[in-house]
């Protein structure tokens, strides 16, 4: 478990550099990567079996973390979020799916495709939930501001 956590964090640092994140934000992305995989592991062990719900939970927490960091550091949230969420990215299963197709093994391809979709959908849903929440908070703040200035 620790090996995966450390390896995931190293991977997040690597992707932070590949994606052209400024050096001063790399530690934040690394912390994000660590949180992402830690929450996923906690989700698998304590919340729900399978892939989908732990992925939703982990993606939501990681997005929340990056949105908060983005507010504090004044940078776009995607810059922190993208390298941080990399441990969840279904890169290996997407490859296994295509690998099975190339080898003409359609049963395996279908199985791996379902796993890939679960990850991709889980990440997207977790991310969209937090994104919607933040947009609503921003809008309600604006409405309150307008009301106050009219008073």
């Amino acid at each position: 478990m620790w090996i995966q956590l450390i390896a995931g964090t190293v991977g997040a640092i690597g992707f932070g550099l590949v994606f052209g994140l400024r050096m001063k934000y790399i530690p934040v992305a690394a912390l994000g990567g660590f949180i992402c995989w830690a929450v996923y592991l906690a989700g698998v062990n304590f919340v729900a079996e399978g892939i989908f719900w732990p992925t939703v939970l982990s993606a939501a927490v990681t997005t929340l973390f990056s949105e908060l960091c983005a507010r504090v550091l004044h940078i776009p949230a995607t810059a922190i979020y993208t390298p941080a969420v990399v441990p969840l990215i279904p890169g290996s299963t997407l490859f296994y799916t295509m690998n099975a197709i190339v080898q003409n093994d359609w049963m395996e391809a279908r199985r791996m495709a379902v796993v890939t979709i679960q990850y991709a959908l889980g990440i997207a849903i977790g991310m969209s939930l937090v994104y919607a929440l933040f947009t609503m908070i921003k809008r309600s703040r604006k409405i309150i501001d307008v009301k106050q200035s009219n008073m």
């Binding site: 995931g8 190293v10 991977g11 997040a12 640092i13 690597g14 992707f15 550099l17 590949v18 990399v86």
Partner: peptide, 8 residues
């Protein structure tokens, strides 16, 4: 970054 990500 590429080396770190690949090894990680």
């Amino acid at each position: 970054g590429s080396a770190l990500a690949a090894s990680g």
